[in-house]
Structure formats: C-alpha cells, structure tokens
Design a protein around this nucleic acid. Structure first.
Lengths: 328, 328
DNA sequence: CTGAAAGCGCTTACAG
DNA sequence: CTGAAAGCGCTTACAG
C-alpha cells in the first residue's frame, strides 16, 4: 500500500480511500491509484485491516471427526449461514481427544475468532472459561458440554448454547412403533451407557415401554451385535448408523435378518433399497449446523440471554424392517 | 501486552520474551510477568504476531459440496497433514458455482493463506493467475483446473499440482471384470460427456472393450437409469455413488435387480449387505486429501518443480452384483 | 539480562 | 478533496 502510494504519488490515506471505495476522491486521482495498484499487483492484506479494526469476521468449527457424514452435513449448514453473514470459517477435528480439542480451541481463540461451534469431547472444558469470559462465543452441537461446577460461583457454569437432536423423542417413537406391531421384547444396541446420546435414547425407550406397561429387562439395554442371536428379543433399536451397520451384519451372518425387526437411529443412503428396507429415525444434520450458526451470530450481535438448549425434531421413516409382527 | 508490561513494571520486550519462552530472563522477572498475565487474563493475539512475522500458517480448502462424503473424507486427510505441520485451515464450499469459488478463493488470498486445496468448478480460473504469481500455492483435487491459454506466454499455464483418482484404470478393471464374467453388452451411467471424471471413465471403458475385441454401441455410453430396461445391456458401470443409487433404484423398480450386473464407482457403507452385495471400484478419499496436503506443503517449502498430476490408485471389490454371467 | 525504537500493513481521527 | 501522524498488538534489530 505504501508502494502503491509512492508510485501514484499520493498519500497512503488516499490509496486506502480508493481501495475502500470511499467517496470524495477526484476521478483523476482514483485513476492514478488504480493504475499503480494494477502495475504493482497490489492486493490488500485483509488480516492487517482486521487487526486494525479489531474485528476478525472468522468463526471456528471443531468436529469430532470431519469425515463423519452427520458432521460434514452439519458443517455445511454452519458454512451457509457464515457465508451469508460474511464470516470465514476455520475448522479442525479432535478425533474425540480432549487434548486435541483444547489445543485446537485455544489456537482458534489465539487467532481471535469471533465464535466457535464445537462437537464437544467428553471432558470438562474448564479451559474455555477464560476464553468465554474474554468474549468468544461458543455453541455446542450434538452434545452439550458437561456443566462446570464453578469453584467460587453460586452454581454451575454453562459455557454456551447447545443444539442437540431429540433422541428421547426418536427412541420413544421407534419403540412405540415396534410395540404397535406386536413386539414386546425389544433390545437396544448403542454406545456405552455413559454416552449422552445413548442415555437419551434409553430414556425414550424406557418411556415408551413403560407407557405400554411392558417390563424392561436390563440386559436388553446393553446388547452388542453378537448378543442378538441369544438375547431373546424380537426387535432392536440401533443407536447410530455405525451400530445399525453392525447389527445388520450380525443378523445377516446368523440368518436372522428377516426375523428380527430393526430400526436405525440416523438415515442413510440406499436404506430403502436394502431388503427389507431399513426403517429409521431420521434427523436433519444440515439444520443442526444452520441453527448453531444462527445462535452463534445472534450472540455476536449482543444477545446475552441465558444459554439455550435447542432440541431438533426427528422423524420416523418406516421402510419394512420394523413393520412386521414377531413370529412367536 | 502493553498492559501486562506496565502492570509488571517491565518493558514490552520482556513480556514478549516470557510469552515466547525465550531464554535469558531472570526467574524473578518471569514470575512478575506471569503474575501480571494471570491477573489481566492476557492471551497473545496470534494474528498480530503473524502479521509482524509475515507468516500466516493457514491453508484454505475450497470444496464443491462439503457434505459430500468423498470431500469430507478428503478434508479430513488434508486436516491431518495440516495439523501435523502446524497449519490451521479455513474451508468453504462453492456448490459448483464459479462465482462463489472466485469470491471464496480471493477472500482466502486476502487473508494471506499460504496455500489452498481446491475442488475446482468447471470455469477458467483466470482469476487465480495473479494470486499464484504473488506466491499462493494451489493444489487441485478430484479434477485438474482447466489449462489457461496464456495471453502472451509461450503456451498454456498450469496453476498448480493436481491429485486425481485413476478413473481410466478403474473403469478398465471394472469392464474387464464384467467381460471375464461373460458380458458383452455393457452400459455406462454417469455424468454428461463433458465431465472430467465421466470422460476418463469412458476412456477406460473403451480401452477394455477394445482390448477384448468387443464393439461399443455409442448409445451405451449415454444411458440414464430410466433407459436401462430397454437398452439391451446386461451390465452397467455407474460413474458415481449417486449414479449407483439411481441405477439400483431403477433396476429394483423394473424387477431387473438380479438380472443386470452392476459395478459402482465409489464404495459406500453397507454395499456388502445389499442383496446382491454391490461390486465397486474403491478409492481412498482420505489419501487424496493427505497427498494434496503433502504437495502443498512441499511447495510452501520451496519446491518449484513443474506442476505434477498425481493419479491415485483404485481397487475393484467384488461383492456379487457383477460376478454372474448374463442369461442370454 | 533488559529496554527504547521502528515496523508488519492497514485504518482512525484529525488537520489542512 | 487530500494528507501527516498515531495506533491495532505484536516482533525484530539494535543498544545499553
């Protein structure tokens, strides 16, 4: 910019004015500056501008695994609203490692992102307190961050808004659907009982069983795909796409594919073309990202209401794998 | 930092030294500075540091559609090498729109990313010439950028390295496989003939047919899923996962699912559990991203050899949908 | 071992 | 309408 100024024989400020399209520059001057810009191949350094103006117009996205289809779609949703509002977005992933999450988040904060959308690892996120206090907004997706017991405060601290899926509602609908088709012994294959999603799915499952007056055998709630053959259940709810795949493989291997009802949590391509078609509880991951982006940007605009937990709806899609009655 | 210095009663430089862990500061001084940092909640502004040192340690990734599983996996590969080498990465997507690509790429350049990995839209990329000249490295993935006829130069300009999949080899292997199983009339369902991938798949297809001395009916090369019933082919090569899905749906709808051999380009989850299992040509998208990242970083390190086109290998995975003989 | 000055590339607030 | 100075938050190169 200095070079441009001296080549055009004007002051730095005039170049700045031209570059920013500010009014009040003689056409002749403008032309001279533009000429110099062209000769020198000048391109304004946005980072320098942002430093001076104190903005960054950048967001961060911290995934668990960026290759996961849900998270990729989620990212797409975030990106849409970010682009719309003029933000660029940094992204990275943790692979579930709390240390990587902390490193990444702090690196983003050090670059002064305005806010971050985080798929949180199961850790305490204490490291974020200082950053949030310093003004970085955080929105958590898929899982809320664990509440942090404040050392000195009056209660628990919540670091930011969260956008999650309505797992309880989905599991409830799935199990009720199975019950309606005559199933009474229904298993659940999902993550360990510690996981957030798993807990919530089991919650919905239990609600539906209780509402129908059916007893729940605790062993049904911690099944692995390998257990299915001997578990005595006539139907299974799978906690994630990966579990659905494992369950289908196990059932195919033992020849029970058409005798065990299956509902998967999370839709997938070609689920309709399997035989039977796989009934799923479906949700819209792009919308999670968009919602998170909206919340984040609202916070950046100054909204300082208490942190919100947004639960996105799910939908049961019957395709055949769950719509038959048990044989016994 | 100024505040920290004055609170600790030392010079700015001393704070800088402590923050950077430079040797040669009295333990007592260090303690005083650290105390002030803690009191003030100071966090170094990385952007300012990078401005001063003239680096950015940032890369850009421009996807076509970040929700596409291949591109999400590709991104993951890029991210791995970026993280390893201390780069942060900005990303965004174009949805195939050349204007969005240009806007995004220029925005990244304005923030002075060191380099970019781009899934190019079908446009001329002329806008990149100035940036590349200014020192931004570009690596193209999945498709190479169109060559740009230089207005004044001696020939064509190539803007950067490219990493692509061996589509010809994959199609060749797939078609040879079908021929081996007795098929002589083989169709192709893929993108329009203009697309890069499509052209290359048809190339490999033709090679294999020619090598076997089989005639190629041109109508076989521009089939749509709806045409399959009357096309008179006994086997189909599908150009992408999306096309594979369309073909499988069309075959299922007309009851030809078990009478037409199918090979898909691009593997997908549960392909093995369909009936029959879907035979595919598989490639590793994570590796594309890693390779692109390696090339990019090598360029940043000063490698100025002529642009390279890297072709990543594919592998045929037989699963049943292609391993039977035609009925006629 | 410590510090005062200059500068990265830009903008802001003020004079002319 | 145009410009000289100061400053964003940091580091570099040089003195003490």
């Amino acid at each position: 910019m200095k070079d441009v100024a001296s080549r055009a024989g004007v002051a730095l400020k005039t170049v700045s004015r031209v570059v920013n399209g500010e009014a009040g520059v003689t056409p002749e001057m403008t032309k001279r500056v533009l000429g110099a810009i062209d000769d020198l191949g000048f391109r304004r350094n946005e980072s320098a501008r942002l430093l001076r103006t104190g903005q960054t117009a950048a967001l961060g996205f911290i995934a668990d695994n960026s290759a996961d289809p849900d998270q990729a779609a989620l990212y797409r949703g975030l990106e849409e609203v970010a682009t719309e509002k003029g933000f660029l977005v940094y992204s990275g992933s943790t692979r579930g490692d709390p240390e990587r999450e902390e490193r990444l988040a702090l690196a983003l904060c050090a670059r002064r992102v305005d806010g971050m959308v985080i798929v949180p690892t199961p850790s305490d996120h204490r490291y974020l307190i200082a950053e949030v206090k310093a003004g970085v907004a955080a929105v958590f997706v898929l899982r809320p961050p664990p509440r942090i017991a404040a050392g000195t405060g009056p209660g628990d601290t919540v670091l930011g808004d969260a956008v999650v899926i309505d797992e309880p509602g989905g599991a409830n609908a799935a199990v009720a659907h199975l019950i309606k088709h005559g199933h009474r012994r229904i298993g659940y294959v999902g993550g360990g009982p510690g996981g957030y999603r798993s807990q919530r799915l089991v919650l919905g499952y239990t609600e539906a069983m209780t509402a129908a007056g059916l007893p729940v055998d605790q062993t049904w709630l911690s099944l692995t795909p390998g257990d299915l053959a001997d578990a005595g259940v006539t139907a299974v709810l799978c906690g994630s796409r990966a579990h659905t795949a494992q369950v289908l493989r196990a059932l195919a291997a033992t020849g029970r594919a058409r005798r065990t009802a299956v509902i998967g949590f999370g839709d997938f391509e070609l689920a309709d073309l399997m035989s039977p078609g796989i009934t799923v509880v479906s949700y819209d991951p792009v919308r999670i990202g968009r919602t998170a982006g909206d919340l984040l940007i609202r916070r950046l605009a100054g909204d300082d209401q208490p942190p919100r937990l947004v639960e996105l709806p799910v939908r049961l899609i019957p395709r055949g794998s769950a719509e038959f009655s048990p044989e016994d």
